[in-house]
Amino acid sequence: MKIVRENVIFEPGQSFRVFSPSLRHYFLWHYHPEFELVYVEAVTGIRHVGSSVTSYDESDLILIGSNVPHLNFDYGIETDYEQIVIQLREQFRETLLAAPEFGAIDRLLERAYLGLVFRGETKRIAAEKIRRLQALRGYEALIALLDILQLLACSSEVAELNTEDTRIKLFLNDKIRMGTVYDYIHARYNRQPDVNEIAAQVHLSTSAFCRYFKRQTQMTFTDFVNHYRISQAKTLLLRDLSVSEVCYQVGIESLSYFNKTFRTLAGETPTGFKKKHLKK
């Protein structure tokens, strides 16, 4: 469960590949030299890119730079979802974007080491184009990909996930097994996860683990557990469980605290979330 390098294989004569992986039951904390554009539709999911750990609702569009560690975006999803991944060869910028007309796309890929998330109309239009790209081959596929990248390069509906360089050179000496941390939280989120216990599992003192965890995820361990609980709560609400049932199933003993935490992290009440999505 340590961070792994993914060996990306391209078909001969291809500068990029498009595929739809399904890995929701597998923790893949990984990196690769290839640039990656990911579009995923799901009720909710975890977005872990570099040191940024957040969640997404309904859909997500992310551009990830070369050698930036990230978790598969379908990890832990319990509902139906769609995921499309585009990976660009490591030499894509050097071989295809030398012309000045591609300057905007080149600058987009230069920024991608921070992890870029796209929203609004940009995400909607890009999703349509990505779906159409799946059916194309050869020259038509390359032109369609450049059209998508130009759309993203010219968009103002974008945010950077990280504020500093998180490429793999900064993670090579990482002695923490992130998979162990995620597995522990998944197994204990509905009870009382104990920071002392997980610290011992990864062979650190509690204070050292807390400092490490905050540095890696920009969250305290408690905050991270609450994010995970609310993510699981969304799935349970869509199974038409009552708010109080969901509250206790995710390990929160106070209904008022659950409602407050849900509103803070999801931007709406559990009841509002349930009504909106069950209506759909």
Rank of each mutant, 00 (worst) to 15 (best):
K2A: 11
I3R: 04
I3H: 03
V8H: 07
E11K: 15
S15M: 13
F19R: 11
F19A: 04
P21L: 07
S22A: 12
R24F: 14
W29T: 00
H30G: 01
Y31H: 15
E34N: 14
L37H: 09
V38M: 05
E41K: 15
V43G: 09
T44V: 13
R47F: 09
H48P: 00
S55D: 09
S55I: 11
S59P: 03
L61I: 04
L63K: 03
I64H: 05
S66D: 04
N72H: 13
I77E: 04
E78K: 15
R93D: 08
A98V: 09
A99G: 01
L109K: 06
L114G: 05
G120V: 03
R124L: 10
E128C: 03
A135F: 15
A144K: 14
L146W: 08
S156E: 14
V158N: 01
E160I: 01
N162I: 01
N162E: 05
R167I: 06
K169G: 11
I176G: 05
V181K: 06
Y184D: 00
Y189A: 03
P193K: 03
D194H: 09
V195T: 04
E197P: 05
E197V: 07
R211V: 09
F213H: 08
K214W: 12
Q216E: 09
T217C: 06
M219G: 01
F221C: 00
D223A: 15
H227D: 04
Y228W: 14
R229S: 01
R229W: 12
L237G: 02
L238C: 04
R239M: 10
D240K: 12
L241Y: 14
S242T: 14
S244A: 11
V246N: 06
C247N: 05
Y248D: 02
Q249G: 05
S256K: 14
F262I: 02
F262V: 01
R263H: 12
R263F: 14
A266P: 00
G267W: 10
K275P: 00
K280E: 08
